[in-house]
Design a protein around this nucleic acid. Structure first.
Length: 327
DNA sequence: GTGTGTCAAGCAGAG
DNA sequence: CTCTGCTTGACACAC
């Protein structure tokens, strides 16, 4: 069982999501942003390894406008060695990474243009995994999409598009149950038709379900992952912020709820992505709880993990690199 | 430096 | 019809 957090590490002074406005697009800014993002990503992964956090969701904007027609810069070849170095580090340290393309990726849209742009975004994110040399156990996580007033038809459209996806995307795609539209049951139906694994979100399941007890839901979702080609099932974990709007995540890990959740696993193995506002802080507490239960994977034994080369993208003298916080 | 309107992209539901 | 939330943050310009 690996523990992870999404995209941002608040304890560090760099971001892997440097970007800029479309209006100020230039090749120079692409190069500077990608170099800075990959450098920061490497530092975050090293930080994670040192802390025993072996799961990480990489943000969608490592390459600004990565699937936008404006970006014709050949970043795949320009940064090939940097992506490869990151991938080597990930494999050497037994890390797991994933992407969560954002809400604009809607494979079941009735609009062919939206579907086309969605696939382009998935191809962009999948190509980063290819460049890192990672296999199909590194996942691209999306939701089913919109309802458009007809649930069955909406599910059928997803299945039809899924069958047409390029292999680099299709073999990595997983679908997450959401909190308002498509439940675990809907995702299971989709799995029956397409074979797509279900990335289970416990909090969404609490918001939208058909009476399946948590332990049963966990078992059903885990069974949709192929042990070798998909790897250990991934999950998103969070819980309701008390007194807030339904669906709002907590700011902090609520340890007794998390403990009770672990009890429901009954020996099932998951890699857990903690969707909690304070990110790595809660992830570290989760690791501590797992260790207390003898569940956490041990960090790689001595003599210490291979180091990443110092600065991805030698051209990385990014003029806008973030200076260390100063007071 | 600080404040703040806005950002490539979709959809549903609340008000 | 407009605004909000979604994994939300942070860019960019005015002051």
């Amino acid at each position: 069982m690996k523990i992870g957090y999404p995209c941002v590490n608040g304890s560090m002074d760099c971001s892997a999501g440097n970007t800029f406005r479309l209006a100020s697009y230039s090749e120079e800014r692409v190069v500077a942003a990608v170099a800075a993002n990959l450098a920061c990503l490497g530092r975050m992964l090293e930080w994670n390894v040192a802390q025993g956090l072996l799961f990480f969701r990489i943000g969608s904007s490592v390459v600004p406008f990565g699937s936008h027609p404006v970006n014709v810069f050949p970043w795949q070849t320009h940064f090939a060695a940097d992506f490869r170095a990151l991938g080597d580090y990930i494999k050497a340290n037994n890390l797991r990474v994933s992407f969560h393309p954002d809400q604009f990726v809607v494979l079941n849209s009735p609009s062919p243009a939206i579907v086309r742009r969605s696939i382009e975004e998935l191809v962009y994110q999948g190509s980063m995994l290819d460049l890192m040399g990672l296999d199909s156990t590194a996942k691209l996580q999306i939701h089913v999409g919109g309802l458009y007033g007809d649930r069955e038809l909406a599910l059928r459209r997803f299945a039809e598009v899924y069958a047409t996806l390029p292999a680099a995307v299709r073999t990595r795609l997983v679908v997450e149950n959401d909190d308002r539209l498509f439940s675990l049951r809907d995702c299971l139906a989709l799995h029956e038709v397409t074979g797509v694994p279900i990335l289970f979100d416990n909090f969404h399941h609490e918001c939208l379900n058909h009476g399946e007890p948590m332990a049963e839901a966990l078992r059903l979702a885990a069974a949709t992952w192929h042990p070798t080609t998909d790897g250990v099932p991934m999950m998103d974990y969070s819980s309701q912020a008390l007194g807030e709007r339904k669906g709002k995540h907590t700011d902090d890990l609520v340890e007794d709820l998390f403990g009770r959740f672990l009890d429901q696993l009954h020996g099932l193995d998951f890699d857990l992505m903690l969707e909690i506002k304070n990110k790595e802080i809660s992830a570290l507490r989760a690791v501590a709880m797992l260790r207390a239960r003898g569940l956490s994977p041990t960090a790689p034994a001595q003599p210490g993990p291979p180091r990443l080369p110092p600065a991805p993208g030698a051209a990385a003298n990014s003029p806008r690199a973030k200076a260390p916080a100063r007071t």
